[in-house]
Design a protein around this nucleic acid. Structure first.
Length: 427
RNA sequence: GGGGGGAUACCAGAGCGGUCAAAUGGGACGGACUGUAAAUCCGUUGCUUCGGCUACGAAGGUUCGAAUCCUUCUCCCCCCA
C-alpha cells in the first residue's frame, strides 16, 4: 500500500498538495518533518507526526527528522494568540538533545538507501548572516504574501500584536525546506495541519528562487471525541520521557481512552493493518467491557516508546492497583517487589517514629506529604468519600493512622479518587 | 491630542456601601452508576491551630463598615482628530 493510501485509511490525512501522491508513487522520495524544541521531551501529540514519518519510511521513502535548533530560537507563531517568550540558548541545547535522542528510537537508521537521518537547522543557519538572509531569501517573498497566512493574520487582528521576530518565522522554516530540497533532494515536507502555511511558504520559496517543485502534506490534528485537547491527563502533559511521565502512567493514559477515541487512536498510533484492526473492533463491540482495543493500543505504544520490560511492569502495577487483588497481597512481597509495583506512582517518605505515635490523616496527607494541597482540601475529599488508605475508605478527617497500619511495617497505599495512587514509605 | 468604557476566583461573567469568601455558566476534581468507558445525576472548587486570616489590577484615602465611593498610578478596549 502506498504511503498516502496508508494515511488515508488511517484517517490521518488532512491536506495534500496536488501532484504529491503521483510523485510518491513513482519511487523513493525524501521528505521531512520538523520538531520544535519547546521542551526537553516530545509528548504524545508529537507521536502522531512521528508515526507519519514511520509510515513514510515503511513505504520505502527516506525520512528526515529535523530538530529546530534555529527555528526554536525564533518561535513559531502558528496557533499562538500571543507573543511567546524566547527560550534561553542553554535551555534550547538541552531540549534539542532530549528530543533528538527520542527521535532516534522510532526510525530506522540502518536500512540502506532509505535510512532515516536527523538534521538540525541550526547547522545551516549559524553561518547565515542577517544581510545575506534578507537578500537571498527575504527578497523572494512579499510581505503581502506573508501577511496572508492565518498565523499572521490572526495576530494582526488581535490585541497583542506580533514582533518582527515571529513574523519572520515562516521565512526561516521556508528556508529549511529550500535548503533540504537543494542539498538533500528533499521534495516533500509533512507536519500537523497547523503547519500548512509554513510548509507552503517553503514550496513557494523553492518555486520562486529556483523554479523548483516541492510538495506538502499535512496530518489531522488529533482531538478527543468530546472536543478536548488530546494528550493531557490530570492536568499534565503526557510525555515520552519516562522521568516526566512514568511508563505506568503512560500505559494508563492509553488504556483510559474512551471507546469512541480508541478506534481513532489505534489507527493512528499503531502499525496494525486494517484487517486486524477491523476484526478487533468487531470483537470489542461484542464485549466492550473487555476493552480489547484499549489494551492493544496501550500495549503497542508503551512497548514502542518504553520497551517490553517497562510494559510488563506497567501491567503488573495496573493489575494490582485496579484488579481484584486485595491489599494483603502486598504483605507477601519483599520491599523491593512492592517498590517495583509502585514504580512510577508518586511516593512520599515519613518518619517511622511519627507513625508509631499515630498521625492524624490530615497531617499525614496534607502536611507531612503532599497528597493533598491543603488540609482543607483533604478534609473535603475525605468527607466526600474520595480518599482511601490501603484500599479502605478514610471514614473521617479525625482518623489516625499508626505503625499498625503499615504494610510490612513500611508502606501505606493512599488513593485520591479511584485512579490516583500514592505510596507513603515510613523509615 | 480630545472624549468614553473597563480591569472581579482556572476561564467567561454578575455584583456597584453592610445580608459578599463573592450569583451563574464552563472547566477541573470527587461520589453514585459502569467496563479504570460514554452519557446521566449528585457534591466540591481561598487558607486556617475553626478564634480568625488573606482576597475583587496597584498604592493611598473617606467611612463604624468598601469588590462597591474618592485620589493617583499601571494596563486594556472603543470613538473622534
Amino acid at each position: 500500500m502506498s504511503f498516502v493510501e496508508e494515511l488515508r485509511w488511517r484517517g490521518m490525512l488532512h491536506d495534500i498538495m496536488p501532484g504529491t501522491e503521483e510523485l510518491l508513487n513513482k519511487g523513493m522520495a525524501s521528505g521531512y518533518i520538523g520538531f520544535d524544541p519547546t521542551a526537553d521531551s516530545l509528548h504524545v501529540g508529537s507521536l502522531a507526526t512521528i508515526m507519519t514519518l514511520i509510515h513514510f519510511q515503511r513505504a520505502g521513502h527516506k525520512p528526515y527528522a529535523l530538530v529546530g535548533g534555529a527555528t526554536g530560537m525564533v518561535g513559531d507563531p502558528s496557533g499562538k494568540s500571543a507573543e511567546r517568550s524566547l527560550l534561553s540558548e542553554d535551555a534550547l541545547a538541552v531540549n534539542l538533545k532530549g528530543i533528538q535522542s527520542q527521535l532516534e528510537r522510532f526510525l530506522d537508521f540502518n536500512s540502506g538507501e532509505n535510512s532515516a537521518e536527523i538534521v538540525n537547522n541550526y547547522d545551516w543557519f549559524k553561518e547565515f548572516s542577517f544581510l545575506h538572509f534578507i537578500r537571498d531569501v527575504g527578497k523572494h517573498l512579499t510581505v503581502n504574501y506573508m501577511m496572508a497566512k492565518d498565523s499572521v493574520k490572526s495576530r494582526l487582528s488581535g490585541d497583542s500584536g506580533m514582533s518582527f521576530t515571529e513574523f519572520s518565522y515562516q521565512l526561516i522554516q521556508g528556508y529549511d525546506f529550500y535548503y533540504l530540497w537543494k542539498n538533500k533532494n528533499c521534495v516533500i515536507q509533512m507536519g500537523g495541519s497547523d503547519q500548512w502555511g509554513n510548509i507552503v511558504t517553503g514550496t513557494e520559496l523553492i518555486r520562486r528562487k529556483d523554479a523548483g517543485e516541492a510538495y506538502a502534506l499535512t496530518t489531522q490534528l488529533i482531538k478527543k471525541a468530546d472536543g478536548a485537547k488530546f494528550g493531557k491527563s490530570e492536568g499534565g502533559n503526557i510525555w515520552l520521557d519516562e522521568t516526566k511521565t512514568s511508563p505506568y502512567k503512560f500505559y494508563q493514559f492509553w488504556l483510559n481512552a474512551t471507546d469512541e477515541d480508541v478506534k481513532k487512536f489505534i489507527r493512528i498510533f499503531t502499525l496494525l493493518d486494517r484487517e486486524t484492526i477491523e476484526a478487533m473492533e468487531a470483537e470489542h463491540d461484542a464485549a466492550p467491557h473487555q476493552r480489547a482495543l484499549q489494551k492493544t493500543l496501550a500495549k503497542d505504544i508503551t512497548i514502542r516508546v518504553h520497551g517490553e520490560a517497562a510494559y510488563e511492569k506497567a501491567i503488573q502495577s495496573s493489575d494490582f492497583l485496579f484488579g481484584n487483588t486485595g491489599i494483603e497481597f502486598l504483605s507477601e512481597l519483599t520491599n523491593e517487589e512492592v517498590l517495583g509495583i509502585f514504580e512510577g506512582v508518586p511516593n512520599y517518605t515519613v518518619q517511622l517514629a511519627d507513625m508509631q505515635q499515630g498521625v492524624n490523616v490530615l497531617d499525614l496527607l496534607a502536611a507531612q506529604t503532599a497528597v493533598f494541597a491543603s488540609k482543607g482540601e483533604a478534609k473535603k475529599m475525605i468527607q466526600g468519600g474520595g480518599a482511601a488508605v490501603n484500599k479502605t475508605k478514610i471514614t473521617s478527617p479525625e482518623a489516625t493512622y499508626t505503625a499498625e497500619d503499615l504494610i510490612n511495617n513500611k508502606f501505606l497505599v493512599v488513593q485520591k479518587g479511584k485512579k490516583n495512587y500514592f505510596l507513603i514509605i515510613a523509615e
